[in-house]
Write a protein that binds this DNA or RNA. Structure first.
Length: 602
RNA sequence: GCUGACAUAGCUCAGUUGGCUAGAGCAGUUGAUUUGUAAUCAACAGGCCCGGGGUUCAAAUCCUCGUGUCAGCACCA
C-alpha cells in the first residue's frame, strides 16, 4: 500500500510538499487513522468544490476545512443549492474521481496570487488571513484552489464519501457579513466505515429527545401556543417532579433555603442591576398602569430582594437561597431546538451570599455538588472558566480579582478546566459545566458565576466583626442549568429508558383477564404508597398486544398477574432492563421497587 | 435574525400535468373474544389539506404575506 502523506516533525506533510522540500518521515497510509482521514477529507472537500464549480460555473470559493464531523466547503453562487442537489454533486464528484486526476501543487507569491484572484472577493478575503508572502495552490485537472494542504496525491483515492447537509454560513463566521452556501460531507477509507458512520447517525436520530419525548408523551409544542414554549404532558410532569424532589432534598441537605421571586419586576430594578442595558434585547417587557415591567430572564434580582429583607451579620454567611426559577428569554427563532433551546425554562437556580474569604470553599462545594449529580447520571462533563465579555459592568480590577479567585479555587483543588475568553456573564466571570451528550455534542448545563458587581450596584452589606458594613460576594449557580435542557439531554442519554428513580412510570401492570383487575388495582394503590407510579393495561386487547404496548412505553418493569399470582399474592416480573423474568411475593416486589427508587440521592 | 428545505387525521405518510365525495397504516371509540409473556377479529368515528390574501371556470396542488418545524450559521441554560 502506498503512502498518501508523511509525518514530519509531528506535522502531516503531503507527498507534493515532501518532494518539493526533500522531507522524510513516517508514512501515512490511506486508512481510518486520524491523520489519514484529515488528508482524505480535506481532499474530498476540494473534489466537492471541483464538482460544484463544474455544475455552478459562477461559484466562488471561500474555505473548505475538515471538522470533527467531516468536512465542509463554503462558497458563493447565484444559484440556489438545496438538499436535492447533493446527489447531483456527489455524482459529479464520483465521475471526476474516476478520472484519477493527480493533485498538483505549486507556489506563487502573494502579489501574484492577488493578481490571479483579483475578481474573486472570497479568495481575497482568504488571503487577508494568511501571513507570509507566498501561497500554495493545489490543482486537479482544470480546477485549482488556494490552499495550504495537505492533500492526497490523486483524487482517484476518494471513493467512500457522502454529502450530508447544505446550509448557509456567514463569511468569516460573522453575522454582519454576507451569507455563503455551505455543504457538509464525510469521507472514509473504506465502504464499511462509511456505512457504520451513517448507521450511527441514524441511531442518534432514534434517540432524539424530540422524537422520544413525543413517543413517551413527555412534552409537546404547539404552533398556536408559540415557538419555544414547551408544554409538559403528564408523563413528563411525573419525571420532572421526581427530579425536582430529589434535587430539593439535595439543596436542603447543603443548607440552601427555598425562596421565590416574582415573575416580573419593575424595569427600574433591571436598570439598577444592569440587565436593562446589557441583557435587555433578550428580555420581554410589558407595562402595568403605565409603569414598565420586565419579565425576569434570571432570578438574581429576586434573591437580592430576599437578602435585603433583613440585616445580616458575618455570622450568618454564607446564606444560600434557591428557587426553581421560571425565566423567559428572547431567543432567535432559528436557535430554538426542542427542549434544548426554548424561550421559557426553569432553572435550578441558587445564589450564595458570602464573604470574600468563603469564595473558595463555596465554589468547591458547588463543584462537588455538580460532580455528585453528573456521576449519578454517568455523564461526562468538562469545566470552562469564562472571562470578561464585551458587554460587561464593573471595573477591570474587580474582573481581574474575581476571575483569579475562580481559577485559584480550581487550581488549588487540582480541578482541570479550559478557558473561554470573553464568555462570562455581564456581571462576572463563570465556570460552565458542559455535558457531552450521546452523540458527542457538548451542552452547557450547570454554571457557577462569581459576582462582585451586583452586590455593589444594590449596595448589599453585612455587619462585620467590628460592626462595620461590608459588601458580600454573590455566587450565582445552577447545577442542571435548566430542567428543560437537562431532561432533553437525559432523554437522549438513556434513549428514553430512564432508570427507575426518575422514570415517569415505574411499573406497568398487565392483568391476564378481567378477573385479575381487582388485584391489579390493589397493587397500583400499594405502589402509590411507596411513591411509585404504575399503569394498568387492562384494555380489551390480547395479552400479547398489551405486553407489547406496555413494553413500547419504555417502562422499566412489567408485572403480569393471573390466577396464580392472585392466589399466591405474588407477581410475575418482566424486567426490561435486565431482560429477566421471575416471580416475587408482593412484599418482596414492593420492597424491590422501593429500594430502586430510593437508591439514588444527590 | 440569516441561508436552504418543509407543513395533508392524535401519530407516520399517500394524493399524477391544478379537475369527481382527500386516502392508508397505527392510535381512538364500540362490539365479539377472556387470553400466561411483543400486534385476535369486525364495525364506527376522525380533515378550515398550518393561517390571511391572490391567480383560475376550478387550488391540498400555482403566487404572496404570515405562523410553525427541520438542517446549518450566528447567538446561548
Amino acid at each position: 500500500m502506498n503512502a498518501i502523506a508523511i509525518k514530519h516533525n509531528d506535522e502531516i506533510i503531503d507527498l507534493q510538499t515532501a518532494k518539493e522540500l526533500g522531507f522524510e518521515g513516517e508514512q501515512i497510509h490511506l486508512d481510518n487513522s486520524k491523520d489519514s482521514l484529515e488528508v482524505l477529507r480535506h481532499s474530498t472537500a476540494h473534489l466537492m468544490a471541483q464538482a460544484v464549480k463544474s455544475l455552478y460555473p459562477d461559484a466562488k470559493f471561500y474555505v473548505g476545512p475538515t471538522v470533527k464531523e467531516g468536512f465542509y466547503y463554503d462558497f458563493k453562487t447565484e444559484s440556489e443549492v438545496g438538499e436535492g442537489d447533493l446527489k447531483k454533486i456527489e455524482k459529479q464528484m464520483l465521475s471526476f474521481a474516476k478520472k484519477k486526476y493527480e493533485i498538483q501543487k505549486y507556489e506563487i507569491s502573494m502579489d501574484e496570487a492577488k493578481e490571479k484572484f483579483k475578481d474573486d472577493h472570497l479568495k481575497l478575503a482568504v488571503m487577508q488571513r494568511i501571513p507570509g508572502d507566498s501561497v500554495s495552490i493545489y490543482k486537479q485537472d482544470e480546477f485549482e484552489d488556494l490552499c495550504r494542504g495537505p492533500h492526497l496525491p490523486n483524487i482517484g483515492l476518494i471513493r467512500y464519501f457522502k454529502l450530508t447537509k447544505v446550509s448557509g454560513a456567514y463569511l468569516g463566521g460573522d453575522s454582519k457579513n454576507e451569507m455563503l452556501t455551505r455543504i457538509y460531507g464525510i469521507a472514509f477509507a473504506d465502504k464499511e466505515s462509511l456505512k457504520a458512520h451513517m448507521e450511527m447517525l441514524a441511531e442518534a436520530e432514534k434517540r432524539d429527545h424530540r422524537k422520544v419525548g413525543g413517543e413517551m408523551k413527555l412534552f409537546t409544542f404547539r404552533e398556536e401556543v408559540g415557538a419555544g414554549f414547551p408544554i409538559w404532558l403528564p408523563a413528563g410532569g411525573r419525571l420532572r417532579a421526581r427530579l425536582e424532589s430529589l434535587l430539593f432534598k439535595a439543596h436542603r441537605k447543603r443548607g440552601y433555603e427555598p425562596v421565590r421571586g416574582p415573575e416580573m419586576l419593575k424595569s427600574e430594578l433591571w436598570k439598577t442591576s444592569g440587565h436593562y442595558q446589557n441583557y435587555g434585547e433578550n428580555m420581554y417587557f410589558t407595562s402595568i398602569d403605565e409603569v414598565e415591567f420586565g419579565v425576569k430572564p434570571m432570578n438574581c434580582v429576586g434573591h437580592i430582594k430576599v437578602y435585603e429583607d433583613e440585616l445580616h451579620s458575618y455570622r450568618d454567611l454564607p446564606i444560600k437561597y434557591f428557587e426553581y426559577g421560571v425565566v423567559h428569554r428572547h431567543e432567535f427563532t432559528g436557535a430554538l431546538h426542542g427542549l434544548f433551546r426554548v424561550r421559557e425554562f426553569t432553572q435550578d437556580d441558587a445564589h450564595i451570599f458570602c464573604t470574600a474569604d468563603q469564595i473558595e470553599e463555596q465554589i468547591i462545594e458547588v463543584v462537588d455538588f455538580v460532580d455528585k449529580i453528573m456521576s449519578t447520571f454517568e455523564f461526562d462533563y468538562k469545566m470552562m472558566v469564562s472571562t470578561k465579555p464585551e458587554k460587561a459592568v464593573g471595573s477591570d480590577e474587580v474582573w481581574e480579582v474575581s476571575t483569579q479567585a475562580l481559577k485559584n479555587a480550581m487550581d488549588k483543588n487540582s480541578l482541570p478546566y479550559e478557558i473561554d475568553e470573553g464568555g462570562g456573564a455581564f456581571y462576572g466571570p463563570k465556570i460552565d459545566i458542559k455535558i457531552t451528550d450521546a452523540i458527542g455534542r457538548e451542552w452547557q448545563c450547570g454554571t457557577i458565576q462569581l459576582d462582585f458587581n451586583l452586590p455593589e450596584r444594590f449596595a448589599l452589606q453585612y455587619n462585620g466583626e467590628e460592626n462595620d458594613k461590608i459588601q458580600p460576594v454573590m455566587i450565582h449557580r445552577a447545577i442542571l442549568g435548566s430542567f428543560e435542557r437537562f431532561i432533553g439531554i437525559l432523554t437522549e442519554h438513556y434513549a428514553g429508558e430512564f432508570p427507575m428513580f426518575i422514570a415517569p412510570t415505574q411499573v406497568a401492570i398487565v392483568p391476564i383477564a378481567d378477573t385479575h383487575n381487582e388485584y391489579a388495582k390493589e397493587l397500583a394503590d400499594k405502589l402509590i404508597d411507596i411513591n411509585a407510579d404504575s399503569e394498568i393495561y387492562s384494555k380489551n386487547d390480547s395479552l400479547n398486544k398489551r405486553i407489547r404496548t406496555a413494553e413500547k412505553t419504555r417502562v422499566p418493569m412489567l408485572v403480569i398477574i393471573g390466577d396464580e399470582e392472585v392466589e399466591g399474592k405474588t407477581v410475575a416480573i418482566r424486567d426490561r432492563r435486565t431482560r429477566e423474568q421471575y416471580n416475587l411475593s408482593q412484599e418482596d416486589f414492593l420492597k424491590l421497587i422501593q429500594t430502586k427508587i430510593n437508591e439514588v440521592n444527590f
